[in-house]
Amino acid sequence: MNLFRLAGDMSHLFSIVLILLKIYTSKSCAGLSMKTQELYTLVFVTRYLDLFYSYVSLYNTVMKLIFLASSFGILWYMRYHKQVKQTYDREQDTFRHYILVVPCAVLALIVNNELSVTEVLWTFSIYLEAVAILPQLVLLQRTKNVDNLTGQYIFFLGAYRALYILNWIYRYWTEPKYRQYLVWAAGLVQTGLYADFFYYYLKSWQAGEKLRLP
């Protein structure tokens, strides 16, 4: 494992820690899209089914379990925690799951490395991860209000993708057998969407709306 990959994973992990910290300390999930969190949970569940049939390393197994547990934890807070659930922007967070899930499922059935259940589910998770941020992007555009931790959450999620691209470039040159065109294409799309997200984040930052935590 190279340093770009490790830094990318740590950035991904840190973004999740930030979101849990935000929810736990402020007892609020204002500005967070439950739709995006649900889609990420679906991404982790469909991708990490391989926990049952393949083993790569202790590191991978532990990280997969952390990602699964934390995504369910975030959803639990947003849905069931007495105080937190009241701060959820239900009226604004109206993005429909199927708009993303159905096209990703169809694409995974058509464009994949192997037409098997596990492979199609894995490919579906790759495609869905690329676009799962969209409900959050729409919510941010609507509310035009982003606090520090939400902004940092997005920053570290974007950094995770950017670092993974560096990791792929590194692996392209150092591992002749490593060629993951589907993953790379989806990763580029995903990073592009985060660039857009950053643009909206900076715009609201410039407008000086709700940026400092009390």
Binding site: D50, N60, N113, N167, R179
Partner: peptide
Amino acid sequence: SPSSEGKDEL
């Protein structure tokens, strides 16, 4: 198999 390549990422 080609499908197992790259599955070492998260």
